[in-house]
Simulated assay, not measured.
Amino acid sequence: MTALPTRASGRPRIERRKHYGQYVAAAVLIGAALFLAKSLAVNPRMQWPVIWHYLWNTHVLSGLVVTLVLTVVCQTVGTALGCQLAVMRLSRNRVLRSAAGVYISFFRGTPLLVQLIFWYNLAALFPTLGVGIPFTGIGVSVATNTLISGLVAGFLGFTLNEAAYMAEIVRSGILAVDPGQREAALSAGMTEAQCMRRIVLPQAMRVIVPPTANQAINLLKATSLVAFISGGDLLTNVQDIYANNFAVIPLLVTASLWYLVVVGVASIGQRYLERHVGRGFTTFNDAPEPGPDVREVAA
């Protein structure tokens, strides 16, 4: 974009350059997208009637409910545990700080699928689980296989794994707050807990919320891993159906459509939530554009 003087007003005239390469790239992408869409639409092996039929199947919808419940519960409990771990990680107590560091390193360093399979096969390590009063013989025990189902193993695996990631997200948000805020609160007579709850965390939310929302969306998609341990989620129930009718691709498309819908709704909610917690802070994208005179001077 260049500025050329005009005789009428004396102000520079903005001349925009045409980027033909962008037009060509856009045309190629649009053409490829249309070709792919047409190929899928006219391909009889896609079995679109089967997709629409099972889209509202009760077995599929029940799996969708399990997926949503698993996401909400694991994200909520994982966030609460992550906040505690973040505070421990920032503690002056070396024992607490080291314990939180070992926990975070372990659950972030091992694959999530391995963790789920471990919890599902916990009976191989502990055949029974119980609680009781030591040295009295008074207590209650239950077979581990009875207690740890695929869904319970999913809750344990996702919650503990999510807590490790949320601990780092919360810790980064706390460190982003000016240390002077904490010092001022302590000098005003607040305790450490009051300072954290009333001063630090409310300001850290602007940094914590965006990655937390992304983590929740990633967790929603990662819940499909419980299909490996028959957790009863959306993908598990879809697999149950195509194991009988062998319509693998149509049923996978059905599951993908539901994932796209739920993730799309969650993304819209994330956008409004980020806008709400970011009130009062101007970003580069939200800053007003300079007026004509400023642009002319810059040119």
Rank of each mutant, 00 (worst) to 15 (best):
T6Y: 04
R7C: 05
R7S: 11
R7G: 05
G10S: 09
I14P: 01
G21E: 15
Y23E: 07
A25P: 12
V28R: 06
R45Q: 13
Q47Y: 11
H53A: 09
Y54D: 12
L61V: 07
L61N: 00
L61I: 10
T67W: 05
T67P: 11
L68W: 03
L70R: 03
V73W: 07
C74H: 02
L90I: 05
Y103P: 15
S105A: 11
R108V: 12
G109F: 14
Q115P: 02
F118C: 11
A124T: 03
I138K: 08
V140I: 15
T146Q: 10
I148H: 04
A153I: 02
G154M: 08
F155C: 05
E162S: 14
E162C: 11
I174A: 03
L175R: 05
L175W: 01
A193K: 04
C195Y: 00
C195W: 00
R197C: 00
A204L: 12
P210S: 01
P211R: 04
A216M: 10
I217M: 10
N218S: 11
L219V: 14
T223D: 05
L225W: 07
S230F: 08
L234G: 12
D240Q: 12
N244V: 15
N245R: 02
T254W: 00
L257Q: 07
W258A: 08
I268N: 09
Y272D: 02
H276G: 08
G278I: 06
R279A: 11
R279F: 05
R279I: 07
F281S: 01
T283R: 11
P290C: 09
E296C: 10
